[in-house]
Design a protein around this nucleic acid. Structure first.
Lengths: 226, 226
DNA sequence: CATTTGACATACCGACCAGTATGTACGTTA
DNA sequence: TAACGTACATACTGGTCGGTATGTCAAATG
């Protein structure tokens, strides 16, 4: 009579309730920051009661940690880590990813959730900090791995340090996102994208001219070592 | 009998009281963010009473605005705008400024006050946003003006857009500051500095070799226009 | 000297907030 | 069907918050 997943999922669907709470919590935290996020706001947005929320999460902190672990992590995975694994020339992949970052006014307005949380919580709550750091490191490592692949394939300059170039990229993306958020202006972001893309192009290995090209030695490329 | 500025400044020195409130408010806001900053914390830090505070400032917001206008503005002026006006080669000046940015653990930990406030308040309070934007724009314009000077003197590549290069620099500085703050690690910041300095060096005009140097055309330099 | 005004001090208020105590109803299991 | 644990719902608490009403006292002003 009752197959596993009926639409009787109206009442008593704990997994669904939990996910809805997480989503609403993410939105509220993204809007107001974690410390300023209101439990009641989340409850009103979901039509869930306080008892239900505290049944699923031990505390506001636990809810916040779950938002980082499950929602923010997924956003970075979908937006960066997964695309990084695609086939094609590494630099082209990176340019494609950067260009595909949302320019919707509301996303410009509220900014990068990872950066927002890190800015607010890293100095204050070590558990938050560690979780966010793991995401940042995974992001950088993913980019670095792709650059290394490009180096071994000969499409990326071999005189650069993949890890440092990766963090350079992350810093630029977050820096421009901050400027655009403050200006509340998508154009600021678009200018940033153009400059980031220009920098990414400079990472390409110089064309192997048949007669033996010169090394083009002096340009800025985040070199290896000190 | 009473020269203007005696040391009787113990009781009833409204200007001093005001400045002390502003300083304490800045510290508290820097630590906790504006919305989470506690009025009582500021009062305890200054041994000033609530009545005194609300005599000098109409509201918490007014206090916050004053902090931005008087303290944060001064920090950027002292750290960037004034040094930008010095004599010497523009790129050397910029490198000197960037290198002189604090690496004290506590400053890494709490991050850039301008960026913190912008991240927290820009989407939420237009008055805050505008004040912070003015500071960002003054910062960028100061750098751009210096780059233009360098171009006219021939020490800075003339094929770059000064405004875009300036915002590129600001974005990188703030981006790395964010990464270092999340990592709570001054080394992250120092690596960032090295890379920023490397990029700054790439903005120098190529040496005018006596026989007519080649233009070194392909490196990334935030070019003019689109 | 009398009065007023600026610079505080104290006590208090209502709103809001995270968290909890307690109750209830569904659904599975024995 | 009886019992029990999960999944909620409601009402409440203690504490903190920004803000205010009111009072005091010193110094300038007439």
């Amino acid at each position: 009579m009752s197959n596993g997943h009926e639409k009787k999922t109206r009442l008593r669907d704990p997994e669904r309730t939990r996910k809805r709470l997480l989503q609403a919590a993410f939105r509220e935290v993204h809007r107001s920051g974690f410390q300023n996020a209101g439990i009641n706001t989340i409850l009103e947005a979901t039509n869930v009661t306080k008892g239900a929320l505290y049944h699923h999460f031990d505390s506001k902190e636990a809810l916040g940690y779950a938002v980082v672990d499950e929602i923010v992590t997924k956003i970075v995975r979908d937006g960066w880590l997964s695309p990084l694994l695609g086939s094609g020339q590494p630099i082209d992949i990176l340019i494609g990813i950067v260009r595909r970052i949302s320019v919707r006014p509301d996303d410009i307005r509220t900014g990068c959730p990872l950066l927002n949380l890190a800015t607010e919580m890293s100095p204050v709550d070590e558990q938050f900090r560690k979780r966010l750091e793991r995401i940042f490191l995974a992001w950088q490592e993913g980019v670095a791995a792709l650059l290394r692949r490009g180096q071994s394939e000969g499409t990326v300059r071999c005189d650069l340090n993949p890890e440092e170039s990766a963090s350079f990229l992350v810093a630029m993306v977050e820096g421009y996102a901050s400027l655009a958020k403050n200006a509340q202006d998508a154009q600021v972001w678009e200018v940033g994208i153009r400059n980031i893309v220009g920098w990414l192009r400079s990472l390409r290995a110089p064309r192997q001219s048949p007669k033996g090209g010169r090394p083009m030695s002096k340009k800025h490329v985040v070199r290896r070592a000190r």
